[in-house]
Computed example of a mutant assay.
Amino acid sequence: MDILILGGTVFVGRGVAEAALARNHRVTLFHRGSKGTGIVPGADEILGDRDGGLDALKGRKWDAVVDACGYVPRVVGASARSLRESADRYLFVSTISVYEERDGELREFPVEAPVGIEEITGETYGPLKIECEREVLAAWGDKGTIVRPGLVYGPHDPTNRFPYWVGRFLHGGEVLVPDVLDNPLQQIDARDLGNFIVLLLEKDLPGTYDAVGEPSTFGETIAACHELNLGALPVYADAEALEKVSVTYWQDLPLVTGELSPMMSIHPEAALAAGLERRSLKETTQDTAAWIQETGIPENPRYGMSREREREALQALRAGP
């Protein structure tokens, strides 16, 4: 197959590109070049900006398009319509954040009314993504496919959500850990997500698929990271203690929320039936550790505390009120 990937140089898109190449498909990446070129060896590249620069793709033909970097409905809609005659299938990478919890159940955000803004925040991310889905399906009908990943983890993760914990335990010493070990957590390796997306293209499958990892807990993630360096010492603190030292869930301590969210307990029946396969937490942890040891944590990560700030928080916790 000839596959065009919008994006393809960062994490999820990179996982798709590498999976497609490993399965002997031809891959073209359309990206701005902001992360550099040659990131995915073996892939062709076309440099351009999808927001107003789609002319760079005119006259080309592919078997399928994977939209791995669509967040704004206006931009996604333009891409979907522009490429309608250039491929046979359009797969859009969405998110499980299109769901919201209502009355203890997960339901899709209503799409009758547009969000009306393009700024991506925690409040707009899900509604914007479901509008993007609607744009794709309006243009492509049953030749459009939607994949909704959960939390994605593994090597090359620029967010630092999972790498934060891997890196902290690798470094050793005291590791500040929130005492919410029973909280449910589902994470899918970017490489498994990439393989699944390519499989859907090979099978030419329409539909919407929740692509999430095996049911797990935050405690199992901490245990897998601790196995990397048993000399590290977890220091557990509850929510009240962390609040007193101004340490926050999710931002400072990634992967942690204060509530038991059903968003972390999704059953991906359709994806499993279509062939989704998921590697073990242990394997992803070990591979992420190898990546960190080779390249280091990305600069200015979005999530996690510096070691200096963590040390200050630990000292404040020991000092008490």
Rank of each mutant, 00 (worst) to 15 (best):
G8A: 06
V10W: 01
G13Y: 04
G15M: 13
E18F: 00
E18W: 00
A19K: 11
A20V: 12
L21S: 08
R26T: 15
H31E: 03
H31A: 08
G38Q: 00
I39W: 00
V40I: 09
G42D: 01
A43S: 10
G48E: 02
G52N: 12
L57A: 07
W62R: 06
V65K: 02
G77M: 03
R81F: 01
E85S: 15
S94R: 09
T95R: 11
Y99A: 10
G104C: 08
E105G: 09
R107C: 01
E108P: 12
E112Q: 09
A113F: 12
V115M: 09
V115C: 10
G122K: 06
E123L: 08
Y125A: 10
K129W: 10
I130E: 05
C132S: 11
L137K: 01
G144W: 00
T145R: 01
P149Q: 08
L151T: 15
T159E: 14
R161S: 03
F162S: 13
P163M: 08
W165S: 09
G167A: 10
G173P: 11
V175F: 05
V177T: 04
D179I: 02
V180Q: 15
N183V: 00
P184Q: 02
D189A: 13
R191Y: 09
R191N: 10
D192N: 07
I197H: 06
L199S: 14
L200Y: 05
E202T: 03
K203M: 10
L205G: 09
T208W: 06
Y209M: 05
P215C: 05
P215K: 09
F218T: 13
I222W: 15
A232Q: 07
V235D: 07
A237F: 09
L242P: 06
V245N: 10
V245D: 13
S246Q: 11
V247H: 05
L253F: 03
V256L: 06
P262E: 00
M264S: 11
H267V: 06
A271I: 13
L272E: 15
K282Y: 11
T284Q: 06
A290G: 03
Q315S: 14
A316C: 01
L317Y: 05
